[in-house]
């Protein structure tokens, strides 16, 4: 009798526990579900904000002039055609300009990687007087807006001279404006587009690498520069990739230096893009802004295409590099 009572009591307790557990589990699952729905909504909403303009540009670039004035057309053109692309590519002189700007961007990027990684390595591994002060100067170059020094830079390259040597031989200083040389020179001395940031990235990365690698190389008889070149730089591949991608994309997109040094139009695709609307309305007599805009869209797609392809291929390394390269001080 007593045993029975205890048994039934025990069973009811177990039952309650099972119920409770089930209840808790449902609660938990429900919460998780709600959270993931919430996350999905927010993430896809913001992804739409980012992608929206790109989608609309791509779809608009296929519109024909009649589609523009057809109010029932939304995103999908009724008469898609490639005419916009043809004219835009012709007015941009696409392949030639693209090739020129790619050469320029690649050249500057290679110089940037080489010089800034050297400086980063120097700051990460060596001790020399005023090191902290000098590194503070690097940080200042990151923070200082470039427009503060744009006038002196402009004047400097307007009459370019090294210690008076050039005016000694030529009689007058060189005018380096209207060419891409100033950008190459600036990058060569680690003062190019966001060089400070790259130095910072490299320094953080090199600091994270174990010292034993270098010591082993030293014992095996490698010189300092050999070690840096053949061992450290290879080990710093994630940082090199990050800086490389950043530098390429930003240089490709850059307008500030291009305008400041009035670089030639036929060597810079994005700069040329900024004038395509006026070129087309002037040369091809497309006076309607709504229609000449279609050519701008086509031009934007053409200009974006190399970056997007590049990004799709290197996207994985890029993110890995960003996460590992210790932008995170």
């Amino acid at each position: 009798m007593k045993a029975n009572l205890i048994k039934s009591k025990w069973e009811s307790i177990v039952n309650d526990d099972v119920k409770m557990n089930k209840y808790l589990r449902y609660m938990h699952k429900g919460k998780a579900l709600l959270f993931s729905i919430f996350k999905g909504v927010i993430l896809s909403g913001i992804a739409f904000i980012i992608l929206g303009p790109i989608i609309s540009i791509v779809s608009n670039s296929f519109f024909s002039p009649t589609d523009v004035y057809n109010p029932s057309v939304f995103l999908f053109p009724l008469e898609p055609h490639l005419g916009n692309y043809k004219l835009a590519a012709m007015r941009l002189d696409y392949f030639k300009t693209l090739l020129n700007s790619l050469i320029y961007v690649a050249g500057v990027t290679l110089i940037q990687i080489f010089i800034t990684s050297m400086a980063g390595y120097g700051f990460a591994r060596f001790d020399f007087p005023f090191k902290k002060l000098l590194f503070a100067c690097v940080v200042i170059t990151i923070i200082l807006p470039t427009h503060t020094i744009m006038l002196p830079l402009y004047r400097h390259f307007r009459s370019w001279d090294v210690l008076g040597l050039i005016s000694l031989f030529r009689g007058e200083p060189l005018n380096l404006l209207q060419s891409q040389t100033p950008m190459y020179i600036l990058s060569l001395f680690a003062s190019g587009l966001r060089s400070g940031l790259y130095i910072y990235i490299f320094r953080q990365f090199f600091r994270g690498l174990p010292k034993e690698i270098e010591e082993a190389a030293l014992i095996d008889g490698a010189g300092t520069f050999y070690t840096y070149f053949r061992i450290m730089l290879v080990n710093a591949m994630p940082a090199v990739l990050t800086v490389g991608i950043f530098s390429m994309v930003w240089q490709y997109n850059d307008m500030f230096y291009v305008q400041l040094f009035t670089m030639p139009m036929d060597k810079n695709l994005t700069f040329r893009l900024s004038t395509i609307q006026s070129t087309i309305s002037f040369v091809d007599r497309v006076k309607d802004p709504l229609i000449s805009q279609l050519y701008v869209y086509a031009g934007v797609v053409l200009a974006l295409l190399p970056i997007l392809i590049f990004y799709l291929f290197l996207q994985r390394y890029f993110m890995e590099g960003l996460e590992r390269s210790g932008i995170v001080g």
């Binding site: 690097v138 170059t141 020094i149 600036l186 060569l188 680690a190 003062s191 060089s195």
Partner: peptide, 17 residues
Amino acid sequence: TGLLFILPWLIGFLVFY
């Protein structure tokens, strides 16, 4: 050696910045 590594940057900083 360290100074040699940062030399290009140092020149750039002094001359341009």
